[in-house]
Write a protein that binds this DNA or RNA. Structure first.
Lengths: 116, 116
DNA sequence: CTTGACACCTAGCATTCCTATGCCTAGGAT
DNA sequence: ATCCTAGGCATAGGAATGCTAGGTGTCAAG
């Protein structure tokens, strides 16, 4: 998948997987891969900065957890994050429909192509 | 529509409208707006550089036309542009499905969530 | 003669994602 | 003992893209 393809949609994807339950960064990467059927195998250098960005924006909160000698930073949605997720999902749908409309082959469309 | 949303998909959209028939820049902007139902009202500063980029990449070719004292640069798809459009449409579909899969609410998914 | 639609162009900015690299632990293989 | 792999986090720097904001010019309507 071309790397620019993802741009602007990563935040929604992360918020969505975290909305299911608190997750740490590495697990988020794993979930994105699993749920996308392998299509989204994101490098850490993409996801970690995004998490920091989302936390700075107040959409995620985090805490450290210690498990078997391994430290993990666990993220969960804030109230604002939940609301934002709703907005983003709606925006995605709108965007996807718009792209679909433009991308699907169609007959030439003059100025009169959109009926009043 | 959030501006980052479009990133990485503009080329496909432009190729798609031009594939219907030769169009000049301004008309391309108009077609994108019409076909997207108004969702994509792109500023010229977005589209013109993109057209130059696509021409430089060999996906579009152009020529000047004079109509009623108005000069227009008309673009049409090259062979490579047609092929590229096909690729991009396929990529869009793959991407859209992947996002849909991640974005749609689902039950918690453990390591066993993907059956062999 | 001013406004608005038509039509093109570019510089510079902001944002985003990726590559590359570094650091650390645990557990199995050699 | 040593190495490798998986797990786990982090950052710097580069590349790409779209937008803002500005500029040029024609033509028709008021």
């Amino acid at each position: 998948m071309r790397s620019e393809t993802l741009k602007g949609h990563l935040d929604a994807l992360i918020l969505s997987v975290v909305s299911i339950g608190p997750l740490h960064g590495y697990a988020i990467i794993e979930q994105l891969r699993l749920r996308s059927g392998g299509a989204m195998t994101l490098p850490e250098g993409t996801v970690y900065p995004a998490l920091h960005r989302l936390e700075a924006a107040g959409l995620l909160s985090s805490y450290w957890s210690q498990t078997a000698g391994r430290r993990r930073r666990v993220y969960e949605l804030t109230r604002r994050g939940e609301r934002e997720l709703g907005t983003r999902r709606a925006e995605w749908r709108e965007f996807a429909h718009a792209v679909e409309a433009v991308l699907s082959p169609a007959e030439p469309s003059g100025p009169t192509a959109v009926p009043a």
